[in-house]
Amino acid sequence: MAIRQGILALLQDKARYGYDLRAEFEARTGAVWPLNIGQVYSTLDRLERDGLVTREGDDGEGHVIYSLSPAGRDELDQWLSTAVGRDAPPRNELAIKLSLAATLPGSDLPAIIQEQRGASLARLQELSQQRKDASGTPRAADTARLMVLDSLVFQLEAELRWLDLCEARLVHTGHIAAGLPDAGPEPAG
């Protein structure tokens, strides 16, 4: 996750302290990826070391205030104007789990797929309801939250399609009997 760049982005409009950065990050992303406050402060220390943020003193209550340096603004501009790389895909625990289960004697791969499908469908319903509840308001924070929710919904929809394909592949290769409920179309080739 781009915590480093996220903190730089949050410092663009005003100087902030660590707890404020955490709260603002969670507010702007719909609290989907909660931040550990220790992670925020260790990132701020590295950003300061790298000359991307500067300390502005404290707020009188013991909170150290950080602001974006010119070098930090340059790095933020570079991050915002550059496409996210897809060279090294993030680890996908579900793909790892299914690929390993497929090679383990005695593993019940159809049951694993069905269990995951149920959990993914339930989460998809939750996120769809959250998306419905958040729509209809023009506030920037709500728009940002909707963008995050849309991303998560589309990821779950893709995951469900992939689970259907995995199940169809098992049927096609003879690893499980045909006629399972929810099995998708057989893969080509």
Rank of each mutant, 00 (worst) to 15 (best):
M1Q: 03
R4S: 04
I7W: 01
L10Y: 00
D13V: 11
K14T: 09
G18N: 02
G18L: 00
D20Y: 03
L21E: 02
A23D: 14
F25V: 07
F25G: 03
E26Q: 15
V32R: 08
W33R: 08
W33N: 03
N36Q: 11
N36P: 01
I37C: 05
I37L: 15
G38V: 14
T43N: 09
R46M: 02
R46G: 01
D50W: 13
L52D: 01
L52N: 01
D59M: 09
G60K: 15
G62Y: 12
I65D: 01
Y66F: 15
P70N: 06
G72T: 07
G72W: 02
D74W: 09
E75Q: 07
L76V: 13
W79V: 04
W79G: 00
S81M: 12
S81T: 15
T82S: 09
V84L: 06
G85R: 10
R86N: 02
R86L: 01
R86W: 03
D87S: 07
D87V: 07
R91H: 08
N92P: 01
L94D: 00
A95V: 08
A95D: 09
L100K: 15
A102N: 06
P105E: 13
L109D: 06
P110N: 13
I112L: 15
Q114V: 11
R117E: 06
G118H: 07
A119C: 02
S120Q: 02
L121V: 07
L127D: 02
K132V: 06
D133S: 13
A134F: 08
P138R: 09
P138M: 02
P138A: 10
P138D: 09
R139L: 11
R139D: 04
A141Y: 06
A141H: 06
D142A: 15
A144P: 02
L146S: 05
M147C: 00
M147D: 02
D150T: 08
V153A: 03
F154L: 14
F154M: 14
Q155T: 12
Q155V: 12
Q155L: 14
L156T: 02
L156K: 04
E157I: 14
E157N: 11
A158R: 13
R161C: 02
L163Y: 00
D164C: 05
E167A: 03
A168Q: 03
R169C: 09
L170I: 11
T173N: 02
T173Q: 06
T173I: 05
H175F: 13
H175E: 10
A178C: 00
L180Y: 04
P181H: 11
D182G: 05
A183E: 09
A183V: 15
G184W: 09
P187A: 11
A188L: 13
G189Q: 12
